[in-house]
C-alpha cells in the first residue's frame, strides 16, 4: 500500500481503528503532515491523483496544542464531508500553542474515497519533540 511508504507518517497497529504516527521538522510541518496523512488514508494511498483546484483559508483556535491538532484535522474532515473534496496540499501560515491559520488546496477525488474516517480522537494523543528537534504526533482515528 503506497500510503504506508510515505516518508512522513506510518500506520500503527490498532485492533478496531486506525492509528498513525506522523513526523515533521517543525511544528507547522507536523500539522501539515498530519493533514496529508489523514487524507492519504481517506484516499487509500492515491492522494497524488487529487488536483489542487481550490485554495481555502482555515483558522482554528483551541484549548491547548494537542486539542489544536484534533480541531485542525476535524475542521478538514468536515470540509471533506461537506464538499466531497480532499485536501491534497496544506501550508500552515501561523501557529501558536492554541491558534492556527493555514491555506489548504482541495480537489475532487477522481476515484472512490476509501477510508471512512468518522472522527479524530483524543485517545493516546501525543504531540512531542525528540532530542534532535523532530516533532512527532500519534493520532487515533475512529473508522
Amino acid at each position: 500500500m503506497a500510503h504506508r511508504k510515505s516518508p512522513f507518517f506510518e500506520e500503527l497497529s490498532h485492533t478496531a481503528d486506525v492509528a498513525v504516527r506522523v513526523r515533521g521538522r517543525s511544528l507547522p510541518e507536523l500539522f501539515e503532515h498530519a493533514a496529508l496523512a489523514m487524507f492519504q488514508l481517506i484516499a487509500g494511498g492515491e492522494l497524488e491523483r487529487v488536483p489542487p483546484l481550490h485554495e481555502r483559508e482555515v483558522g482554528v483556535a483551541s484549548l491547548d496544542l494537542e486539542s489544536l491538532l484534533v480541531d485542525w484535522l476535524t475542521e478538514l474532515l468536515v470540509l471533506f464531508a461537506t464538499t466531497g473534496e480532499l485536501v491534497c496540499r496544506a501550508r500552515v501560515t501561523a501557529l501558536e500553542e492554541t491558534r492556527l491559520r493555514a491555506s489548504v488546496w482541495t480537489g475532487p477525488p477522481p476515484f472512490e474515497p476509501y477510508e471512512d474516517i468518522k472522527a479524530v480522537t483524543y485517545h493516546d494523543l501525543r504531540v512531542e519533540q525528540d532530542e534532535e528537534g523532530t516533532w512527532w504526533a500519534t493520532i487515533v482515528f475512529d473508522v
Binding site: 486539542s67 480541531d71 476535524t74 468536515v78 464531508a81 468518522k118 472522527a119 479524530v120 483524543y122 475512529d142
Partner: peptide, 13 residues
C-alpha cells in the same frame, strides 16, 4: 459523528 466530535471538544473544558 459531528455531534460526538463537537461535545468531546466542548467537554475538554
Amino acid at each position: 459523528h459531528q455531534i460526538a466530535t463537537d461535545y468531546i471538544r466542548e467537554f475538554q473544558r
